[in-house]
Design a protein around this nucleic acid. Sequence first.
DNA 1: TTGTTTGACGGAGGGTTCTCCGGATAAGTT
DNA 2: AACTTATCCGGAGAACCCTCCGTCAAACAA
Lengths: 189, 189
Amino acid sequence: MSTKRVEQLHAQGLRTRASLLEVAREAFEESRDVSLNSIAKRAGVGIGTLYRHFPTREDLVFELYRDQVQRLTRASGELLDEHSPQEAFRLWLERFARYAMTKAGLLEVLRTATAHGRFAQVGRGPVADAVEHLLVANQEAGTLRADLTADDVLLAVAGLYQLDPSAEDWERRAHRLLDLVLCGLRPRD
Amino acid sequence: MSTKRVEQLHAQGLRTRASLLEVAREAFEESRDVSLNSIAKRAGVGIGTLYRHFPTREDLVFELYRDQVQRLTRASGELLDEHSPQEAFRLWLERFARYAMTKAGLLEVLRTATAHGRFAQVGRGPVADAVEHLLVANQEAGTLRADLTADDVLLAVAGLYQLDPSAEDWERRAHRLLDLVLCGLRPRD
DNA sequence: TTGTTTGACGGAGGGTTCTCCGGATAAGTT
DNA sequence: AACTTATCCGGAGAACCCTCCGTCAAACAA
């Protein structure tokens, strides 16, 4: 049967893929800049195989943090359930900042994921969707300007990507930035 | 005499340095991603020589746009002479955006120059100084919140670095961003 | 004039990224 | 069992980045 065959063939591919991801996760925990070469070697796989599974370095890193990003985007709904739109929005932005800073690689992922690039095209990106969700709720509540788009918001908080997670003052700077942004997004008068 | 000797020795170095810069400028106009190898070759110089003059790629690019950056930073004073602090601030930010977008390489330079990195340490960077200048004038006029720092401002407009100069809508997006930022920086009530 | 010093030069070399294609292996076919 | 096909694997190879060090020539001193 065709489907079984596909599964079998995939089985092999999926195994090496999983192996690659596991090795990559370990490697990235040790240091941020790992050579793809070394990952392939540590996974006991040719470099060509790695590239077939993950055509670019970004693809690999993105996959590593996929669940983290998902958890973040899902949080928008949960926060809206438990808090007022205004609070939910602020809490979500703070979580966004914390996520971006905590795991070093995530920052890069979030930046490219929110930029208008390859990832953004997929339904304009899950992150943009989460923002949109929060945005609409706040606009209906009248706590955010009605003319805003998710794009506006993501651009406004882009300063987060400039922060250096290894510096101790990133938290203070991030806090100030979010304050300014939230102030600017409020309805005029 | 010692100074003459230094000048003579420098003369040689300066010539190759100038040659490198000239070639680099041409090369970068053709395409953004040029190999340092090719620049060295086109300048008729060994790759080692290039690296001695410009230890990192950033150093080279930064040098290419040094005068552009200077012109931008100087504009802060001129604008303050000719306009109200508020207008000067807005006009300067718009010029900042335009500069960053027009010359492709400049965007990268401005980002690293404003980030807290190597360049920023030198007197916290000329760009930061320009912002500081405008900021103080506005705070004295009461048109910007008194607790703001240049760092805050630069973080707030960092969204500009996310824009894609080759897309047609960057101008609209930049405009919206600046609107939001200026709104957020105004004194509360 | 003949060392000697000192800065500048060139490129080999090790490590990386990414591409490309021939080889292997399993599923399906006759 | 022999053959075909689809899929995956591996690594050679081209291009690049950056470092390191031996060489060279100008400037100066003896």
